[in-house]
């Protein structure tokens, strides 16, 4: 993959792959269960304002997921260890979906260290009567219908299309399944892994950014997060129209603009 850098963490237990581009205040982007196939346009946009670091999670290109046994604390400590090793002290943490849950966990574990917290359609809570979609029980076409506001868009079709080359297609299929499997280590049990009991610890000003038409984690979850983030210096909810769960992809300009604006305050 282009532009990927490598770092050995904890005596080679993790061979971390990450992107680093741009300059300015340090911003760490934590990707969702779909992985991060490239330094995507939304990250390019953010890199115009920030020094963006976007690591691939264990199982998504970074090795060592077997060392993180179903334990959210182990994953959270791993993520902080990584930032220590990268010398990132006071990051703006941006996390999408699964990465949003991880960002929230990080901010709860070490609240003084997060400058701003931006949760983009984060996983991690359970709202009675409004369950999140079980994306582990979806085939690629179903996933696209659920994840995109406009499943017919070119963006959505490109997301599900396999490369022409059979071998490449095979690799893409394997990567997808592997990535979901890796996320499943932490998300499979479904719903809340205890985040609701820890969110009170978050101090950082927090932006809850949602696609209005999110069918994976409905926008109603934003209120639940706000309610539980009782000690955050500030909680702002911003809902982006014409966007689903992949809001950063579907409404790239509006979404990244919201992030930049929130960080400028």
């Amino acid at each position: 993959m282009n532009g990927l850098q490598t770092l050995n963490l904890r005596n080679g237990r993790f061979n971390v792959k990450y992107y680093r581009e741009g300059s300015g205040a340090p911003l760490v982007f934590l990707h969702g269960a779909g992985g991060l196939p490239a330094f995507t346009p939304d990250l390019e946009a953010l890199a115009k304002h920030f020094a963006v670091t976007a690591p691939l999670h264990p199982g998504f290109g970074t090795s060592g997921e077997e060392n993180l046994h179903e334990d959210v604390l182990a994953l959270t400590l791993y993520a902080w260890d990584l930032l220590d090793a990268l010398g990132i002290e006071q990051p703006i943490l941006v996390g999408h979906s699964f990465g949003g849950m991880l960002a929230a966990e990080m901010a709860a574990l070490d609240p003084r260290r997060v400058k701003k917290l931006i949760l983009v359609a984060p996983a991690g809570l359970y709202l009675e009567g409004c369950p999140t979609a079980d994306f582990f029980a979806m085939m690629p076409d179903q996933l696209v219908r659920a994840a995109f506001f406009d499943p017919g868009s070119q963006l959505a079709r490109a997301f599900v299309e396999l490369p022409e080359d059979k071998r490449m297609a095979e690799e893409v299929m394997i990567q997808r399944v592997r990535g979901l499997g890796a996320a499943g280590r932490f998300l499979w049990p479904l719903g809340d892994r205890g985040l609701n009991e820890r969110l009170y610890r978050v101090k950082a000003p927090t932006l809850l950014l949602w696609g209005e038409g999110d069918r994976i984690i409905p926008a109603a979850y934003a209120e639940k997060f706000r309610e539980l983030l009782e000690n955050s210096a500030e909680v702002k909810i911003e809902t982006i129209p014409q966007a689903g769960h992949l809001v950063l992809m579907e409404q790239m300009e509006a979404a990244t603009h919201a992030i930049v604006q929130f960080c400028a305050r």
């Binding site: 582990f136 029980a137 085939m139 299929m173 394997i174 399944v177 979901l180 499997g181 499943g184």
Partner: peptide
């Protein structure tokens, strides 16, 4: 149904490769 048949993580990398082929 397909979505319930092979949940992610159920098969090893080698097994997924065999299935894909």
């Amino acid at each position: 149904r397909p979505e319930h048949t092979l949940p992610p993580g159920y098969n090893s990398k080698e097994a997924i490769r065999r299935l894909a082929k």
